[in-house]
Amino acid sequence: MNIYVSNLSFNTSESELNQAFSAFGQVNSTKIIMDRETGRPRGFAFVEMTQKEDGQHAINNLNNTELNGFSISVAEARPREERSYSNNSFNNYKRY
């Protein structure tokens, strides 16, 4: 199960997230999303758990709890939507 975690402190590490979620089951991966320009955390992350039941238990128990002084929001991640590039000037170039 893929879980979306938002409102993270910029000081939160992936190991801290892993530890918090591991209390509810096996964690496959933890990924804090970084800003491409600055290299700083963007304040959200994704945690993937092996079992859906464990993930749901983690969501129910960690949503609106405090982690490093911030009240985090935890929910099931939604599939990423396709981005439309129709407004992008790249599409105005002819391809030969």
Rank of each mutant, 00 (worst) to 15 (best):
M1V: 07
M1P: 06
N2R: 15
N2Q: 10
I3F: 08
F10D: 02
N11T: 13
S13P: 03
S13N: 07
E14M: 09
E14N: 15
S15E: 14
E16F: 00
L17W: 00
N18I: 00
N18E: 14
A20Y: 09
A20M: 13
S22G: 14
S22T: 12
G25K: 07
V27L: 02
N28I: 12
K31Y: 00
K31C: 08
I32R: 04
I32C: 01
I32N: 03
M34C: 01
D35H: 14
R36Y: 09
E37Y: 12
P41G: 02
R42H: 06
V47L: 05
M49Y: 08
T50I: 02
T50C: 03
Q51Y: 00
K52T: 11
E53D: 14
G55D: 07
Q56Y: 06
A58F: 02
I59L: 03
I59N: 13
N61W: 05
L62S: 03
N63V: 09
N64C: 10
N64I: 01
N64F: 12
N64T: 06
E66T: 14
E66N: 13
L67W: 09
L67S: 06
G69S: 07
F70Y: 14
S71Q: 11
I72Y: 03
I72L: 06
V74L: 11
A75M: 11
E76R: 05
E76H: 03
A77Y: 05
R78Y: 01
P79A: 00
E81Y: 00
E81N: 08
E82A: 09
S84K: 10
Y85N: 06
N88Q: 10
N88W: 05
N92H: 11
N92V: 09
Y93F: 15
Y93S: 13
K94F: 11
Y96G: 04
